[in-house]
Design a protein around this nucleic acid. Structure first.
Length: 1084
RNA sequence: GGGCUCGUAGCUCAGCCUGGUUAGAGCGCACGCCUGAUAAGCGUGAGGUCGGUGGUUCAAAUCCACCCGGGCCCA
């Protein structure tokens, strides 16, 4: 056979391979090939297909594919089912945009049915983009059996999960404080909130709270920038340790301000550090106290009746958002409580607490059992209970705000007000100021399994480990109950039906059968989505209740959907029980850091709640791809990079390899097109060239691997044995790293091998073995050995490379072995690792670096042979003779000798080993180090010989052992010397006639080769050669005639003489100041 | 505001967990070599107050504290 020619470019190669994969269905073939083998379980985190995939999606897809391919090659069956996340706000927002509507009011006006129809249509807008991109980058995934989170089957499994949580008593109804747009009637996600910050000027008020039973009639001063929350006030918070003052007004309001209202003799309490900034009156201090002294004091409500002392939104708060539970009765209302969120930065040091209208407030309320009752309704209007004519007014209406101030003034509750400029979040759709409001919500009591969550999390192999202990660990340690419900439309409907007569009566359905049991058979077209599902109702089954069961209006948090995929993708527990068991938990998942509180959490939380188990054993986290300036890519910045440009230009392999090798997956990366080009040029072009070299000469020599004629590896040349040893070592090292998910380390190691060892050393140093110039048996055999070695190594390299760069690896493997690499096994060592040989080669390569530097320094070109190289290797090692031959060739020297310390050109340099001396001598270390560096040669020699020596340190003798120093040789004298890291070379630069003649001969060869090439000859063409020049040149040519002829494939060499000698090509050139004339013609 | 994370050469990154006195690599740049892989290959060199300040230590890129800057997540 002949080895095929490479396609012109990487992208072209990849497209060819894609066609082959499609024709052969290689993906499924690779699955079938591992049928019955151990399962390696992978979960695909479902993307939302209503947005375009970008470069940041490529990195996690590359990681996933890499691991899946690797595990397949190590003999595992790797099920890879695609999935689509189809519910949630992104889909709804897109639908709103398409419909040209905005907000809940408009959606409901349009009708939920129509709205959800548009949502459903939009979920796969970019599905093709995703599939196309995934396919193009070689991400093998089963798209035919993809799970889709909005199908009836999927939803039913999710229902089952919710009913299980209910069955375990971990489902409850409570409140959650959310940024809420009262116009749109919806809470906003943090992402939406972030879009709507604006600088506004609000009215901040200082309010007097009248203490009950205080001997001085003191009023506690508090402060707020949201006066509308004052009717909802149920407590004041102080810092336990903070110093507070009780002061009496002794004078009038200071001139100018005029607005602060207080009578002489009025008594205030506030934090000492904030007194000056707060008060506008002259005061005398009556008493100094701490927050702890104030705790427990009661005060009069500002707006009597606005909140009932024992009020709660009718039995809904079973535990509070923190699951703290423990309502202690109404006594906590309108008292002073301790809290850790009180700061001295603004206000009075006394924090007005309206439980329903602030995150801190709510938490405090839940912990202490404060009444949880709204003073503002869902449309942002004060409820009937609020006095002062405020009821029914919108809280941000200026007139209503005015009314609040009027009420306060009227009842002597206002000290003063001020304009307060700050940033405040607004609805990005309608610009209304957002209200932080507690909203009705359903929770999973994850806090009940918090310890278990942390335990299971600790058992997960997080990559990087800090992600598990740090970000995820911290998050779990501060776990709060999972808010499951969303006041939206397009989502899994919560399967919760509540009785209209008694809220304690509820049905949480875990299957469609359970629904059918209550409402009669469902149609075959049954779809669980709103609004149809809202129509189902039935009589309460509780004894003599008489109420009707109605579905709560909320839908489910979409993270619950995606976190349910381990069972929902199989429609477990309704079918496929066996598949579920086999595929749970996952051995491996990989997603971006932003999933810590998203999918990583929802997967773990659900499997813990449902199965008391983790749902993934190992996870590789990746960070974002930033733009070239280090900024996050976002549509609004307009800096989103299209991955196709890079793929079309450099190929998917280069992009994948770049992403894996540039830095660890979990570090943010700047998008660097040049870096991708570098990978293409360095790694892939090198591999192409290496292959091209192989196939060119294998073709010329008629060598094939089926009939290689090579000797067993152990009988081949030292270079072959070295390369096979390295290849075996590499396979072992890569396996270990890939098992440990050290993907970047593995990628770098592999490209290091290809570039430095395979191409730059093995091929470069072995080239002439691939053309059997002299047809003797020995040369032929050496060539066959070399072909076999290079063939095997390239083939192994293809297999090692396959998970990283599936296209090129497959092309190469097919070219060399005739079958897909993705059906092959990942290489293992064939037992040819020779540590001594590898070490010798490392030594020699270090020496080569120094030798080249020495030549460079003296302007001694490599074609000029030199007599002698003297060398030192650390530890007194002596590389074997065969390996030294390679060094002699590389540096073009006749002989390599090793220096010994008896040589007079060697000087010993002793360096202190601080790691040993430091602990022993402590503060005297620098002094000892100085002495060691200035030892007499005799003492250095004794250390070198393994004896200890005595030094005088501060009048005392101390012994220095040989292992407390390191000793290196430095040469001096006539040699050109270079040294580093214990290695040393000394080059004898003296030339004699013989060496000069040989140098000339090599120059001549060089000139002839150039002329050959410029004349358009094939590398295997034979020539007739003519050389003319000075006596020196001609005699050198004469002397090395055979060498020149052999190197240039000259069948005849004519030296000197006249005329053109029949040559077709002539060239005049110069050689070390000698004029030279070279002629050649192709021999017949 | 809180948590996590990153900051090392012009660029992209190692090294930091486990402190050791001369901080590495690749790219780019300059110079050179080689040429039977040739729209290839190899080498040499210049280039860094390791974000800043303070601390611990005989010794700090490395450990600690604070600060500055980028990023993510959460408020």
């Amino acid at each position: 056979m002949t080895y095929p020619e490479l396609p012109a470019s990487h992208p072209e190669l990849e497209e060819g391979i894609l066609r082959i994969w499609e024709e052969e269905d290689t993906f499924h073939a690779s699955l079938r090939a591992r049928e019955g083998e151990p399962e390696f379980v992978f979960y695909e985190g479902p993307p939302t297909a209503n947005g375009r995939p970008g470069v940041h999606h490529i990195i996690s897809r590359t990681i996933k594919d890499l691991v899946a391919r690797y595990r397949t090659m190590t003999g595992h069956h790797v099920t890879r089912i695609a999935g689509w996340d189809t519910h949630g706000l992104p889909v709804e927002l897109e639908a709103e945009r398409q419909l040209g509507i905005s907000g809940k009011a408009q959606i409901e006006k349009l009708g939920i049915a129509e709205f959800n129809r548009v949502c459903r249509e939009g979920i796969f807008t970019y599905k093709d983009d995703w599939e196309r991109l995934s396919q193009r980058i070689g991400y093998w995934l089963d798209y035919e059996n993809a799970y889709v989170t909005c199908t009836p089957e999927y939803v039913e499994s999710v229902w089952w999960a919710i009913s299980e949580i209910e069955r375990k008593g971990l489902l409850y109804r409570g409140y959650k404080v959310v940024p809420y747009c009262s116009r749109c009637g919806t809470g906003l996600s943090s992402h939406e909130v972030a879009m709507g910050w604006a600088d506004v000027v609000d009215t901040a008020v200082f309010v007097k709270f009248h203490l009950i039973g205080d001997p001085d009639g003191a009023r506690v001063l508090s402060w707020t920038t949201t006066p509308w929350t004052l009717p909802g006030n149920v407590a004041l918070a102080v810092g336990d340790e903070i110093e507070y003052l009780k002061v009496r007004v002794v004078g009038d309001s200071e001139s100018g301000s005029g607005k602060a209202i207080a009578e002489p003799g009025e008594v205030f309490i506030l934090a000492k550090p904030l007194m000056e900034r707060t008060l506008r009156h002259e005061v005398e201090v009556l008493e100094v106290m701490t927050g702890a002294d104030l705790v427990g004091r009661r005060y009069e409500p500002l707006f009597p009746g606005a909140v009932d002392a024992d009020g709660a939104e009718a039995g809904r708060s079973e535990g509070g958002a923190d699951g703290a539970g423990g309502a202690e009765g109404p006594s906590a209302a309108w008292t002073i409580l301790p809290a850790d969120f009180v700061t001295m930065e603004e206000g009075t040091g006394v924090v007005h607490t309206a439980v329903m209208y602030g995150e801190d407030d709510f938490r405090l309320g839940a912990q202490t059992g404060l009444p949880m009752q709204h003073s503002v309704d869902g449309e942002g209007r004060f409820v009937e209970r609020v006095p002062g004519g405020l009821a029914g007014g919108h809280v941000k209406d200026p007139e209503v705000e005015h009314g609040i101030l009027a009420w306060l003034t009227e009842h002597d509750l206002l000290y003063r007000s001020e304009k307060y400029p700050h940033s405040y979040p607004h609805c990005w759709r309608c610009d209304s100021a957002l209200l932080y409001m507690a909203r009705d919500a359903w929770y999973a009591r994850t806090t009940a399994v918090k310890e278990r969550l942390m335990e299971l999390n600790a058992s997960i192999d997080w990559n990087p480990a800090e992600m598990g202990t740090g970000r995820m660990g911290e998050w779990l340690a501060n776990n709060v109950d999972w808010s499951l419900s969303r006041d939206r439309y397009w989502g899994t409907p919560l399967p919760i039906w509540v009785c209209d007569a008694d809220e304690e009566h509820r049905d949480v359905l875990g299957s469609y059968e359970a629904l059918a049991e209550r409402v009669g058979a469902l149609s075959s077209e049954f779809d669980p989505h709103r609004p149809d599902i809202d129509e189902y109702e039935w009589d309460c089954r509780s004894e003599s209740c008489g109420g009707r069961m109605r579905r709560i209006p909320q839908v489910l948090d979409a993270w619950f959907d995606s976190g349910s995929m381990p069972y929902a993708q199989w429609h477990y527990p309704f079918e496929n029980e066996e598949e579920f068991r086999v595929h749970f938990p996952a051995d491996f998942i990989a997603e971006g850091v932003d999933q810590t509180r998203g999918w990583f959490y929802s997967l773990l939380a659900l499997s813990t709640l449902l199965f008391d188990e983790t749902s993934y054993r190992a996870v590789v986290v990746n960070d974002l791809i930033l733009d070239q300036e280090g900024q996050k890519m976002s549509k609004s910045r307009g800096n989103v990079v299209d991955p196709w440009t890079a793929i079309d230009r450099h190929g998917a392999d280069a992009l994948r390899y770049y992403l894996m090798s540039v830095s660890s997956p979990w570090l943010p990366k700047r998008w660097d097109p040049d870096g991708i080009g570098d990978v293409e040029r360095k790694l892939f072009d090198t591999l192409r060239n290496t292959y091209r070299f192989f196939s060119l000469y294998a073709g010329l020599e008629g060598w094939t691997h089926e009939n290689s004629g090579a000797r067993p590896p152990s009988e081949r040349s030292v270079m072959d044995r070295w390369l096979l040893s390295r290849t075996d070592s590499l396979a072992e090292e890569l396996r270990a790293e890939l098992e440990g998910y050290e993907l970047t380390r593995a990628a770098r190691r592999l490209s290091g091998f290809v570039l430095d060892e395979l191409s730059n050393w093995y091929v470069r140093r072995s080239r002439d073995r691939f053309w059997a110039t002299r047809p003797d048996a020995e040369t032929k055999q050496a060539a066959r050995d070399a072909f076999a070695t290079l063939h095997e190594t390239l083939r192994t390299t293809a297999a090692l490379l396959a998970p990283f760069a599936p296209f090129f690896a497959d092309w190469l493997h097919r070219a060399l072995a005739g079958e897909s690499v993705h059906l092959a096994d990942y290489p293992v060592s064939a037992g040819r690792i020779d540590p001594d040989l590898e070490r010798d080669m490392r030594d020699v390569r270090e020496l080569a670096v120094l030798g080249r530097a020495a030549r460079e320094q003296e302007n001694l070109r490599v074609r000029q042979p030199l007599r002698l190289l003297r060398a030192v290797v650390p530890g007194g090692r002596r590389p074997s003779q065969a390996v030294l031959e390679l060094l002699a060739q590389e540096l073009n020297v006749k002989r390599v000798e090793f220096l010994s310390d008896t040589d007079d050109i060697v000087r010993l340099v002793v360096k202190p080993d601080f790691g040993r001396l430091g602990p022993r001598f402590g503060a005297s270390t620098p002094e000892v180090a100085r002495l060691v560096q200035n030892l007499e040669p005799e003492q250095a020699r004794r250390l070198r010989a393994g004896d200890s020596i005595e030094l005088e340190l501060g009048g005392e003798d101390v012994a220095i052992a040989p292992d407390e120093v390191s000793i290196t040789e430095v040469a001096s004298g006539e040699l050109v010397v270079r040294s580093a890291d214990g290695y040393l070379v000394g080059l004898d630069r003296m030339l004699d006639e013989e060496l000069v003649a040989e140098g000339i001969a090599r120059e001549l060869v060089n000139r002839v080769q150039r002329l050959r090439r410029d004349s358009g000859l094939e590398v295997s063409d034979r020539i007739e050669l003519g050389i003319r020049g000075s006596d020196e040149v001609e005699s050198a040519a004469q002397e090395h005639r055979e060498y020149i002829a052999g190197e240039t494939l000259a069948v005849g060499v004519q030296i000197g003489g006249e005329g053109d000698g029949g040559s077709e090509e002539w060239r005049d050139s110069e050689l070390d100041g000698h004029a030279v004339r070279i002629g050649l013609r192709r021999a017949r």
